[in-house]
Design a protein around this nucleic acid. Structure first.
Length: 481
RNA sequence: GGCCCCGUCGUCUAGAGGCCUAGGACGCCGCCCUCUCAAGGCGGUAGCGUGGGUUCAAAUCCCAUCGGGGCUACCA
């Protein structure tokens, strides 16, 4: 049987990193098993769902490269894959369930329900509603016909229990005392998540449901529902939740949870995929870096960790650096040129672009987040109108600075050939002549041309900057001493 | 409160009775390299929540306990 899995976010928020991890695991599982990966929109919460969130989810799924084989946008044999288009189907199932007595009209009011739960809590028993507040069979038809507001609830068999084997949690048992007669159709005729999601899983032939652990306790409902529909329930796999540094479910108060935020801060999709995969799963050997293809070839749901995982932005950044260093120069330029231009507020001329390309090998290995590139190359394309204060006071307010700048000027001015080699030998000779060590001799030059004590390698920077500009900047700084 | 899940370095994890004086990765610290910052190399720091068992032997099995988390809606 072909493996069919789905990622079914509800568009009530942007794509969350935790959801992205769930999507990734579904994707890896599908690809590892030559299965089908489906993207569905569980948008039964009409009050909170928006098209904007839907777009955000789609955009970032594409950005991550998590291509789906069937689903929203691209379609498939099951229609639009949006639950909001399938209300008729859900109502039909609800009717069938009433017909087969697996569900019933419920007239219990919110107040009654609340009292029921409060009593149960006080008594120390299960607060799951068991249908005990409902009228006898005889009354129901009349009250429904009279137009009385009612929801449709699933009739959970009592006594009873539901057992299933979760791929990551293994054997699970839930006593039906703990499972309430849950609402499947609201009084306004709309389906709840439990109904819509399960009907879709059944109709779409989903074989494995891989989702967050927050749905673990709801699983008996979904299994019972599927069985009542006469279907074979899917196999379930519940992934642990992503936590913030405080050990609580990852949320906005821990910082960025939107995928878009990571994209904007310059994280590569390869890096976040790799990182997210590591959160709950390990490659098995002593390596943490793996391409999506390597992950696919090694992915095994049964080895996924049960433990909740704390999201660690530092490790993500490290991984991002690894991937950035692994880019070709062309790829690097392609993904950073725009950022540099945005930072400058103008486009680069052909010559400047040439300078940028020369600088690429030097800055690539110093970059963890894409936008940092702007900081590293800005000095090439703008005049130094202000020097970094700390840098200035640290190296320029010293007696050696004057000596160094004068000597550098004298050493560089006569150079006919302006290459990395000629610059280096001239400056090294300058060190010998002045008796300054490399640090004392070079740092003032660095600050003079870049404005900071931190810059790409000096000789290369001077070479790329050009002779005229270099001499001008050194003179300018010299004048300020 | 009820039910469920989880518990190895700060963090992510390897570990499925002897291979563990617990391995790797990130972080952190130090050293090396070195024109700064990175990168890289080398080394170091730090952990089996606790208490009982079972066993010749337990991080691995059992019980208890403690701790953390999730669910408990006409949200998903």
């Amino acid at each position: 049987m072909t493996v069919r899995v789905r990622f079914a976010p509800s568009p009530t928020g942007y794509l969350h990193v935790g959801a992205a991890r769930t999507a990734l695991y579904n994707y890896l599982f599908a690809r590892a098993n030559d299965g089908v990966f489906i993207l569905r929109s569980d948008d039964t919460d009409t009050a909170r769902s928006t098209e904007e969130y839907q777009e955000d989810i789609l955009e970032h799924m594409e950005w991550l490269g998590l291509e789906w084989d069937e689903g929203i946008v691209i379609g498939g044999e099951h229609g639009s894959y949006r639950q909001s288009d399938r209300y008729d189907r859900y109502r039909e199932v609800a009717r069938d369930l009433i017909e087969s007595d697996s569900a019933y009209y419920s007239f219990a009011t919110p107040d009654q329900l609340e009292q029921f739960r409060k009593d149960a809590r006080d008594a120390g028993t299960s607060p799951a509603y068991d249908g005990s507040l409902e009228p006898g069979y005889g009354e129901v038809a009349g009250r429904v016909a009279a137009g009385e507001s009612a929801v449709i609830r699933f009739r959970v068999p009592r006594p009873g229990e539901t057992r299933f084997t979760d791929i990551v949690r293994e054997d699970m048992v839930f006593d039906h005392k703990q499972v309430d007669d849950f609402v499947i159709l609201r009084s306004d005729g709309s389906p709840t998540y439990h109904l819509a999601s399960t009907v879709d899983d059944v109709d779409y032939g989903i074989t494995h449901v891989i989702r967050g652990e927050d749905l673990l306790s709801s699983t008996p409902k979904h299994i019972l529902l599927a069985q009542a529909m006469g279907a074979e329930p899917a196999t379930y796999a519940h992934l642990s939740l992503l936590m913030g540094p405080d050990g609580k479910k990852l949320s906005k108060r821990h910082g960025d949870t939107a995928m878009s935020a990571y994209r904007e801060m310059g994280v590569l999709p390869e890096a976040i995929n790799n990182y997210l995969a590591l959160l709950g799963w390990s490659l098995g050997d002593e390596e943490d870096v793996a391409s999506i293809d390597e992950m696919i070839s090694r992915f095994d749901l049964t080895t996924v960790s049960k433990n909740p995982a704390v999201f660690d932005p530092q490790k993500l950044e490290w991984l991002n650096g690894v991937y950035i260093r692994g880019m070709s120069d062309d790829e690097f330029v392609a993904s950073t040129l725009l950022l540099v231009e945005e930072d400058l507020g103008r486009t680069l001329s052909a010559d400047e672009r040439e300078q940028f390309m020369e600088m690429v090998p030097l800055i690539k290995e110093r970059t963890k987040l894409l936008p940092e590139v702007s900081d590293q190359v800005r000095f090439l394309f703008t005049n130094i109108d202000k020097y970094d204060e700390k840098s200035w006071s640290k190296v320029m307010d010293t007696p050696e600075a004057l000596v160094a700048l004068d000597a550098a000027l004298a050493a560089l001015t006569p150079l006919d050939e302006w290459t990395i080699e000629s610059i280096e030998s001239a400056l090294r000779q300058m060190l010998v002549d002045t008796g300054l060590n490399a640090r004392k001799g070079f740092q003032p030059v660095r600050v003079a041309i870049s404005g900071s004590t931190v810059s790409p390698p000096l000789f290369e920077s001077l070479a790329i900057l050009g002779k005229l500009e270099t001499l001008t900047r050194i003179s300018n700084a010299r004048a300020l001493l």
